[in-house]
């Protein structure tokens, strides 16, 4: 296929294994009763897992830059929406 760079099968399996390990980690950490910190870690771990899927399974890593820029635009939009809504909700 054209000039696309491929992600080797070995890497794919490694990514899958990492996803399983991270799932185990997030379940374990949730049991530790870290208080408000636990939400933060849960979301952080989820973000890492999502990035793995996006970069390797969905091949963002080998796509042209514009794909990542587009994703960033969506992420920025979501961040802005969240932040400004909390300008209301957090101070109401």
């Amino acid at each position: 296929m054209e000039n696309r760079v491929h992600i080797p099968a070995g890497h794919v399996l490694t990514v899958w294994a990492s996803l399983l390990v991270l799932t185990a980690v997030t379940v374990t950490v949730a049991g530790l009763h870290l208080g408000s910190f636990s939400v933060f870690t849960a979301i952080a771990i989820a973000a890492v897992k999502a990035s793995l899927v996006l970069l390797f399974f969905m091949r963002l890593k080998v796509e042209p830059v514009i794909f990542r820029v587009m994703l960033l635009a969506a992420a920025a939009t979501i961040t802005v929406i969240m932040a400004l809504t909390f300008a209301d909700v957090a101070f109401r």
């Binding site: 939009t77 802005v80 929406i81 400004l84 300008a87 209301d88 909700v89 957090a90 101070f91 109401r92």
Partner: peptide, 18 residues
């Protein structure tokens, strides 16, 4: 345009900060 939607809600009971 994404940052300004709250101006439709000035009298809705939204927080003063927002």
């Amino acid at each position: 345009g994404y940052l300004v939607w709250g101006h439709h809600m000035f009298t809705s009971g939204m927080s003063d900060t927002s």
